[in-house]
């Protein structure tokens, strides 16, 4: 558990970060909370000759809520998300999900930027961001650009982010209606066996909109357009529920690991999704 040697940089501003990235290309990487990257370096599964610490870079932290739009700086920790009063009002699903990530010690360090940029299918926030239809703000040598969370993930550890870009913030609209984050895990601090993020709005007794994404059931987060669509316009009767679950089962592609075989994961996914939908519906 000893990492290979690396150079450590601690710039004060984004220009400093970008210049190291530019100089060393994919030999350089940023570190945020380090709770995904450092273990990989210690296992020597990630070799990072040039490590750029983001913690002193100005302007990367904080949560702002403005005219129904939420912006969370990349270096904001999961702990800060849990304890931010205003955020719980406009996007309660953020708190519900964050409380199910890792354990308090990890959450003091783990950041939203690291969680979404990492590209690990086990991370909870990518699916959550897709459910919220969030936008990621990236900055690189050519300036700033934004990309939809739903377009960001390509494969495990492969994202739309270029090696010389840094994620500075995530943005999404305040969510209305019901929400639920359901996660099955083996123990505290475990990644999901199956997790579901659901947002539902109601119009009378009818589902007006539904956004559904799942985690750790494919090599990317799974945002299922069809699952959401199956609920819209229904009163969430058994048939529409089943249609939504079936649609999701058509979109996921889990692999066998110590959490269990594929058969089990598909079953767990359907149960967790059902529970999340029911929960969000009740809260809508």
């Amino acid at each position: 558990m000893i990492p290979a040697a690396f150079e450590y940089y601690r710039p004060k501003d984004m220009a400093g970060v970008l210049s190291v990235l530019e100089e060393h290309g994919d030999d350089a990487r940023v570190v945020a909370g380090g709770h995904s990257l450092i273990p990989m370096m210690k296992l020597r599964m990630a070799e990072v000759p040039h490590l750029i610490d983001l913690q002193d870079v100005a302007g990367l932290t904080g949560i702002s809520i403005d005219a129904g739009r939420v912006r969370i700086g990349a270096m904001t920790t999961q702990h800060e998300i849990i304890n931010h009063a205003g955020l719980s009002d406009v996007a309660p699903i953020m708190r519900e999900a964050s409380l199910q990530i890792a354990d308090p010690q990890v959450r003091y360090m783990g950041t939203v930027g690291g969680n979404v940029a990492n590209g690990d299918p086990g991370n909870d926030m990518p699916g959550l961001m897709q459910c919220l239809d969030a936008t990621f703000i990236l900055v690189g040598p050519d300036g700033e650009r934004s990309v939809a969370a739903r377009d960001f993930y390509e494969a495990a550890y492969m994202t739309d982010r270029a090696d010389d870009e840094v994620l500075t913030a995530v943005e999404f609209a305040a969510s209305k209606g019901g929400y639920a984050y359901e996660k099955q895990k083996r123990k505290i601090g475990d990644y999901a066996t199956a997790a579901a993020a659901v947002l539902i709005t109601k119009d009378g007794g009818t589902c007006a909109s539904a956004s559904i994404a799942m985690t750790n059931l494919s090599d990317t987060p799974v945002y299922s357009v069809d699952a959401g669509a199956a609920l819209v316009g229904t009163s969430l009767d058994e048939a529409s529920m089943k249609a939504a679950v079936d649609a999701m089962l058509g979109d996921i592609d889990p692999t066998e690991d110590n959490r269990g075989p594929i058969e089990f994961k598909r079953h767990a996914a359907s149960v967790i999704l059902r529970r999340a939908i029911e929960n969000a519906w009740d809260r809508a």
Partner: peptide, 16 residues
């Protein structure tokens, strides 16, 4: 008796 093995027991007994 982790989750998936218990699930498998239930599954084998036809409880799903």
């Amino acid at each position: 008796h982790d989750h998936w093995r218990i699930w498998k027991t239930a599954n084998d007994l036809g409880l799903h």
